[in-house]
Amino acid sequence: MASAPAQADLRTRLQNFIPKLVLAPSVAVIFLFVYGFIIFTLYLSFTDSRILPSYNLVGFENYSKLFRLSHWTTSITNLAIFASLYIGISTLIGLALATFLDQKIRGEGLLRPIYLYPMALSFIVTGTAWKWLLDPGIGLEHTMHLWGWESFQFGWIKNSDYAIYTVVLAAVWQSSGFVMAMFLAGLRGIDNEILKAAQMDGASNFQMYRRIILPQLRPAFLSAFVILSHLAVKSYDLVIALTGGGPGRATELPATFMYSYTFTRNQMGIGASSAVIMLMTIAAIMVPYLYAELREKK
């Protein structure tokens, strides 16, 4: 009588315990390699680390140096231009493509993967391909000249003021199809009954999208925003392959800035402080947004 509940107790306790035990290593690894290194970076940003980490604290010196660097100002301006255009245009194109594909057209099964395939390429491939396409000496401009359109000019990639827009172009090309897929899934999830009811009430097509469909796509908007914005902030490979940060330093982004200061320029302290600023920027944008969106669900 006394032993039976105790045994059952042990079993339930074991059952409760095992999932935790199984998860423990990965949780520990995440804590060390994600949060541990965030704290380490934070610490390094207050030290005078140069070629290798040092533990000599210097206060906010790295941060004050960072914000006096015109190179850093260029990087964050570029990120602002890149992120807003990239997220905005990808979302618009993705939404438009999804809406058009959702009109029960013929050949959807063929069109959908065509739009989606750029996402299967890595950013390095996209960057290299667009680099060749946009290069005035071998790409589009050259081809147009060969075809007889001598006055055609498209040298954005070689122009310090416009090169950042070529990065947007390549990134939008790559991601729009993926955003389309997300919106398409959202559109397919909308209950047809509601649409029929709206039609019966005499709603126009525009009103239906404006009042019924778009509001219901809200979760898709959230996912698109979260995915695109983290891609924008961490984008490194695309810039490296497409422009190499150039012409000059005109297309440097905070990610490339952080990498070069930390690993090639022997200024690990400044590199770490730029990483911390990047983290805080993302947190400042994402946390309120996620908070607002997720609270409503409850």
Partner: peptide
């Protein structure tokens, strides 16, 4: 290396048209 790279930054920005020679000189000092 850190100074060499700072020098690169200014020279390349000038050569690619981001600075005029006066700004470049000031930037080089900073």
């Amino acid at each position: 290396a850190s100074i060499k790279n700072a020098y690169y930054d200014v020279v390349t920005a000038f050569f690619n048209g981001s600075f005029d020679s006066e700004t470049a000189t000031e930037e080089l000092v900073t």
